[in-house]
Amino acid sequence: MTDRVTFRGVSKSYDGHQVVAPLDLSIAAGEFVVLLGPSGSGKTTLLNMIGGFATPSAGRVLIDGEDVTDLPPARRPTATVFQDYALFPHMSLAANVAFGLRMKGMAKAERLARAAAMLDLVGLAGFGGRGVHQLSGGQRQRVALARAMAVEPKVLLLDEPLGALDLALRRQMQEELVRLQKRSGATFVHVTHDQEEAMSIADRIVVVNQGRIEDMGPPDRVYLKPATLFAATFMGESNIIAGRVARVNGQEFLVETALGPVALRGAAVPDDAIHLVLRPEQLQLTPPTDGIALGRARVEELSFQGTHCRCHCRMEGLDLILRAPVAAGLRAGVEVNLYAARGDVVVLDG
């Protein structure tokens, strides 16, 4: 099976400044892919190169195996949902949704029926006659979605579409996006800087930073086993412990860290500078089976978060962040022993 979208050696520079380094990327048909990265990381440029709003400086973009690099947006089987929605202010909602169908030459009665059906799909049945300015932000979002989906694109491109919505509405729209994507079977490529949003909707997350792909994979894998330090810190909080491989002994090695020596399993090169990554919820107060003792820590600050307590712990030479169960009853000033399961520790180079 060919991939729906393929980047082959694609790079992009503006005025000599490289925003996308040469990269390859494949997106399968029916996949919900999220491009995740901070602002200025190049994720929107990647999206624009699929949609045809930006042309690569080098490399080719393929859709269903066909080279679309030089095709304008109108001739690509893609449709974009813009960050500011870009609804036509002088048209009714029905006319907005039917616009793409009109451009394809569909007869009026048919396209209006389709527009009504699309509005129904996004929960705006009967809104067709209204004007754009009568809508709330969430409703505009739905109309933009209906308009883009009405042309039945093979790839739907979403450029931070939920950025302007409040938290509750954003959660609701995230669920609806997933529902619509599964129902239509279209490929969705979604850009965001919100890692929680990325984790809750994506089949696959592509972490982008400084024009490079830092990590790529299913949300749980990217979260639990990040491939780079950037991925580890951008996808939620991480404790990063710098260290040096002191000794390698077959399938085991010893790392010198500020917390003392830590013995881990796996391959390593002696004298390598490495980092150990542990999520705050992976720090434990009681020794697990096959655990590592990290040492004694003093709880400096503590904030109640509902499901857990987030604690700043001071250790010899290092501060760690801990997510402790509320039931543990920690208070600022108490001393605890910290442990981690050996299998939870992620080892990263550099």
Binding site: G51, G52, F53, P72, P73, A74, T78, A79, T80, F82, Q83, D84, A86, L87, F88, P89, F99, G100, M103, K104, R147, A148, V151
Partner: peptide, 14 residues
């Protein structure tokens, strides 16, 4: 913003 609105129209085949 207006440029985006025009882009949306191009994107939809105008």
């Amino acid at each position: 913003h207006q440029a985006n609105i025009e882009r949306a129209a191009y994107d939809l085949g105008a």
